[in-house]
Design a protein around this nucleic acid. Sequence first.
DNA 1: GAGATGACGGGCT
DNA 2: AAGCCCGCCATCT
Length: 105
Amino acid sequence: MTDFSEEVYATVQRIPRGRIIHYGGVAALVGKPRAARGVGYALSHLPPGTDVPWWRVVNRRGGISTSRHNGTAQTQRAILESEGVEFDHLEQASFDRFGWDPFGS
DNA sequence: GAGATGACGGGCT
DNA sequence: AAGCCCGCCATCT
């Protein structure tokens, strides 16, 4: 476990239920606005059953970015919908409606 | 230490 | 609006 990963996990755990944020947003909150890719890498190594709500992290379009991980995308969407997040016909959620503003609490 | 990989973003077409 | 290409970062081999 690296320091960077821990900061990422700590940040993700602050995301309120029913809200979402994109990888670049998490990266910015940990002080590295350009480390979106690093964030994705860190989350990809999370063990199943972790207390980190990784499903609240989506790509910049508000869509599921885990599509390449066979099966994962379906699970992520199901959980988000159960929390109240709505997806349009393009499988994308609106940041204007569900985006998390860390300063707006 | 160098090269390759991956849950990514932004800009241009 | 969607896709392609390039650039960025952390981590692995």
